[in-house]
Amino acid sequence: MANYIHVPPGSPEVPKLDIALSDVDGPGCREGALQLLRRLRPHWSPEEVTLQLFTDGITNKLIGCYVSDAMDDVVLVRIYGNKTELLVDRDEEVKSFRVLQAHGCAPQLYCTFSNGLCYKFMQGEALDPEHVCNPDIFRLIARQLAKIHAIHAHNGWIPKSNLWLKMGKYFSLIPTEFTDEEVNKRFLSDVPSPQILQEEMAWMKERLSNLGSPVVLCHNDLLCKNIIYNEKQGDVQFIDYEYSGYNYLAYDIGNHFNEFAGVSEVDYSLYPDRELQDQWLRSYLEAYKEYKGFGTDVTEKEVEVLYVQVNQFALASHFFWGLWALIQAKYSTIDFDFLGYAIVRFNQYFKMKPEVTALKLPE
């Protein structure tokens, strides 16, 4: 199995609760959350519980539950978005969560329930594009990503990437039309035809699979808001492991570099320039080698190889999220212009393609 994730022995079991939460805007949501808390925090008095809705996510709904204003113990309740089971393998997500938790790279996972999961809130600030280009912060991010990538596969097993499999699945789910006439017109005029998309996928698979990027455990969705920076402790942690799994190391970094542009107001002039990338990639390679026990000496050539791999794999990231956004445009109930986002990602893919394919790996 390409995406086999092995949970280390001795990892705490995660209870599955037979509770479903209604939409966050409905009156049943509080009752459902309290039902979960009766199991997870039996000593909390229901009338003292505060629910706070977080509005950053565009896949799921997220609620913080706590009893004291100090917020020293916050249970996060995440309700899966409509039809997101088409996009996310929930069993794999829980396995990834548990593997990362076992290696000190994720918060405690308290339980899963019928349409979501609960986990420990991480103290700190979710980042924005202006933070991820700050050298003090991006070195921490590079180091944390290297730590995850260095988690070894079980018993020397050699993992394979499931990127092309997943992309093919997403491609099979994209809508062919929209019922709203205006939306449909925009879809037909601004989104590449299925034939063009299929040709690009075949080209990418052939080109990128042969770049020599190792397959490692990846986060696969390292957008700014999924990075929590704790200034007091001087560290960063990543959240949301829905898309985690074995993938090309360079994809994970290229995907993160694309996210420098932001999500709601996308601006690709913020994509990191060569100088920033060189610093970032060097910090990453030093940490990766250290975690792997290979010393910390990094050559110019190693940085150059990774630079070429990362910028070419950034194409696959645009394409992946373009397909994802088309599916969300059809099914999601979250107020976000998913079709517009898909168009932006595909446009950037075609804009970047000649530039990054001109890059050559050093001899």
Rank of each mutant, 00 (worst) to 15 (best):
F313Y: 13
K330A: 06
M201C: 08
C133H: 12
P214W: 00
Q108V: 15
L315V: 03
P9V: 05
E47C: 04
V303R: 13
Q101S: 08
I343K: 12
T59W: 13
E300M: 03
M71W: 14
M204G: 13
Q198A: 06
V183G: 00
S213E: 01
P192R: 07
S332E: 01
L21Y: 15
Q35N: 07
F319Q: 02
L281S: 04
L270C: 09
N347G: 05
D56T: 03
I343D: 01
V298R: 01
I58G: 05
A142H: 12
Y110I: 13
L37Q: 02
K166D: 03
T55M: 12
D221K: 07
L127I: 05
E355M: 05
I227H: 15
I227Y: 10
W157Q: 05
P27D: 04
I79L: 00
G340I: 04
P354S: 00
P159M: 06
L197W: 07
M167F: 14
S68L: 10
D73N: 05
P354C: 02
F336W: 14
T357R: 08
P214N: 01
T296Y: 12
E265M: 07
L211D: 04
L188H: 15
L37V: 11
E275G: 05
M167P: 15
D190P: 14
P107L: 06
V183D: 00
R39D: 03
I327A: 09
I228R: 08
V298W: 02
S22A: 06
C218R: 13
Y243V: 14
Y268S: 00
K147Q: 04
L188Q: 11
Q52A: 12
N247H: 14
D267V: 14
S244Y: 10
Y251K: 05
E181T: 13
L100R: 10
L87Y: 12
L173Q: 05
E48C: 03
V191E: 05
